[in-house]
Design a protein around this nucleic acid. Structure first.
Lengths: 353, 353
DNA sequence: TTGTAGGCGTTATCAG
DNA sequence: CTGATAACGCCTACAA
């Protein structure tokens, strides 16, 4: 009775024994890291299938190698919420590409503001932090301790040593505003994204700006106001078509005080604004110009071409992935500043008055 | 010079030595699995922070424990594509909840139709397969070998031993169709989801049904046709508002042959159809009734309430997570059949003729 | 091309 | 409450 108990799963050394080779040889057969004679390989493979061995245990392999092949992507708040945004989705795609060579997958994690215990105890090789709010700094602190590569996308790591991937939100917003100014607009309104995690809808006051925690919103607003310093702004409760619709209605309600153009801080908001205008019988762009931000194909726009700022969303993820790859290879990571481009569509034109 | 090289990261035994305790005691301090005197704990923690030790290495811990705390969610095709669908997003949320106690995160993986090597070599504790197409069976085969828990959501595992989470797509579609029939409709058209992974738009013929690989589409169609056996159907190239718009235009183009109601297989498609109707100056539901499927809050619908079938999307994920938890606890997993509910909104009414 | 040996960093078990 | 010991399953120099 020299056979193994059937209850235990076979290990590579069981396979090696059964095949009459050493464990190292069997290991090589599975990793392909070196040459093995055909006969030997066949015997090992036969033994494996005989014993129901499905290949090396990834847990053991990752301990031995010091790598798990997993990269964590950390979001603040609900996943559902993150993925509602087409920009995030595009970015994830880019990230998956940028990491493709390197990793077997992306570990979705939530930084729920707890003690970060879960964050720190996952068997990952690196972290990508997606941060809009102020919590990023705390996450960075937790994660730094592990000594693993970290990249922050659109957030403030609060530590200059950590590479970031950033967008020129303010400059791009200013460029778009200039386009409207060049067309002759002098009286515009702004629909902003949320200023803080409470996601309140309403007029944007200096006090609210001072308290804002979402950098993207503030930066884009600042850029637009470089060109239109006195433009009124209203914050939406999220980047949603229906939010744009609600805020758009408010802004367009009074025929007298109506602006000649509305600049929304996301394409989804812009689509909502356009819909609000259409509801009121206003033609876009003849009666009112509307522009967005993001440049992601928005479902629900039909064949209109929105004037917008195209941000390199997929690129953002890809670049982050590349930095991770570099750092894992021992080179230092570098902050990457990406730039956006204004794309003029058919939703902006000269003002009607 | 008995001190460690500073280049190596401290391990738990370094910490134990520095604190003057055994490694087992130090381990307990970090795991909290047993009582430790305050004094001892303080000394260990002090030593840890002194040495820059950030807690047990998750790789080693997962080897020792036999658990990594990671659950893989396997999609077919591009991630971007999967997350475009609000139903998927909701489901992921439910899954995250269902697994919350158990796991530190969700590993997003793509079954790219390769040899499944990546699939099998990730350090995960269980797999959730999201499958619409026929490839699920192959993924199941690969994954089975590992001897880990597997749950299939909306797909055919091709193995009765594998627990599934299913929806009563056909029955629910029939129930919705009956609602229309009761209202008096006799002449309806169907907008289906894709029939296969090629995502072709066009009339649905018996041949195409025979070749279809996406079960959801076929089931919903079959259910609707129980009530309206001769209803013409057109497949959309995806679950998108703009697809519904395109197909809706086609179906409504000819004022003569216009149906009195259109049943779309997703809410997004239904929104597109409604938009197509509005474009043509048709009122919903006075001139034409439109219904969808899914019951997820669709962005871009404004305050209309779509008549639809509400599927338990979040529940689907939660239930899958619970089954995984059970199986990980050694109990057998069970297939869960979830049911949908018709929700009548304001987009359906009696036919105009 | 194949085998030998040692350790990756933890934690479960059991004895004190 | 604390300590000694033995795996967990694999990989990779290095030697043959």
């Amino acid at each position: 009775m020299s056979s193994q108990e059937p209850s235990r799963r076979a290990t590579i050394s069981d396979v090696a024994r059964e095949a009459g080779v050493s464990t190292s040889t069997a290991s090589i057969v599975f990793s392909g890291k070196a040459k093995v004679s055909d006969g030997t390989r066949d015997r090992v493979l036969a033994a494996a299938s005989h014993l129901g061995y499905a290949g090396p245990d990834p847990r053991a392999a990752s301990l031995r190698r010091g790598r798990s092949g997993i990269v964590a992507v950390v979001f603040e708040g609900h996943l559902r919420h993150a993925f509602l945004d087409p920009v995030t989705t595009a970015m994830m795609d880019g990230l998956a590409d940028g990491l493709a060579e390197l990793s077997s997958g992306i570990l979705l994690m939530r930084d729920d503001g707890g003690d970060g215990l879960a964050l720190a105890s996952a068997p990952v090789d690196a972290y990508v932090l997606i941060g809009w709010s102020g919590r990023t700094r705390e996450s960075v602190r937790v994660v730094r301790g592990r000594g693993l590569p970290v990249v922050v996308i659109e957030g403030d790591p609060g530590d200059p040593g950590i590479p970031r991937v950033t967008l020129d939100n303010a400059d791009a917003s200013a460029a778009l505003a200039r386009h409207l100014h060049d067309l002759g607009h002098r009286d515009i309104a702004i629909v902003t994204l949320s200023l803080g995690s409470q996601r309140q809808r309403g007029p944007v006051t200096p006090e609210r700006i001072a308290e804002a925690t979402i950098g993207v919103t503030v930066d884009r607003l600042e850029g637009t106001r470089r060109v239109f310093p006195d433009a009124p702004a209203v914050s939406a409760a999220g980047s949603l078509i229906d939010e744009g619709l609600v805020v758009g209605r408010e802004l367009l309600a009074d025929p007298g005080g109506r602006p000649t153009a509305i600049l929304a801080q996301s394409d989804l908001l812009a689509v909502g604004v356009i819909r609000a205008a259409e509801e009121l019988g206003l033609r876009v762009p003849e009666d009112i110009s509307v522009a967005g931000f993001d440049g992601i194909a928005v479902d629900g726009l039909g064949e209109r071409a929105l004037t917008t700022v195209v941000q390199p969303a997929v690129e953002k993820g890809r670049v982050a992935g590349e930095q991770i790859a570099r750092m894992l290879a021992g080179e230092p990571g570098e902050t990457q500043d990406l730039t956006c481009v204004v794309r003029v569509g058919d939703t902006t034109g000269p003002p009607s008055r």
